[in-house]
Amino acid sequence: MAAFLRIKGFFNKLFSKKRSRVGIYGPPNAGKTTLANRIVRDVTGEALGPASEIPHETRRARRKEGVEISSGTGSKLMIDIVDTPGVTTKIDYHEFLEYGMDQDEAVARAREATEGVAEAMHWLREDIDGVIYVLDSTQDPFMHVNIMMIGIIEARKLPVVIVANKIDLPDAAPQRIKSAFPQHPVVEISGLEGNNMEALYAKIAEVFK
């Protein structure tokens, strides 16, 4: 029986192994798209989508297939990367007016953003095999949306890597994130400057294999 399972495992790996679809999740402006672009650019030289200081720049999930992650110790892993819209419990179009948008633009962005959040939740429920959860290290990790999302990820038994992003900023406090989520691996990076990406790739290769 054990031998049979081993052989079955071997053939599964060889022939039918589905690539893991890894979703990049987190609150708006955590740096998800910046990170997705860096990963995809490191590997393929392309970008996935525009990043912006204005929240809810990403309002549709975007997928890049067949991204090969190298762990640094020789092991490799092929994954699909899905950059998702930021998850939040509130969207007020007035926020966008502060970035110089006019009323119509801001209202349209708010509408699309609500659909984007719902879309991100659908992907998580149906089509995601693992999660990179991105947090801005200068923000409070205990924001309810993070507690909720990590709770959903745990309830679905999805493998997760938490990213403590923006460690290049002077008021970054990645330690707060580590103590908020002691049960999960946390990797400190700057997606913008590309700091500590090797550690992240190694962790991705380990957790999503």
């Binding site: 419990t89 509130k90 969207i91 179009y93 708010a110 609500t114 507690i147 990590i150 908020a180």
Partner: peptide
């Protein structure tokens, strides 16, 4: 909540519980 948000009207919820992670 997302389906019921209407720009200029309802703009969402605040939801809180004791964070039970950590320690």
């Amino acid at each position: 909540t997302m389906m019921e948000i209407a720009p200029g009207g309802f703009s969402g919820i605040e939801i809180e519980t004791y964070p039970s992670f950590g320690g």
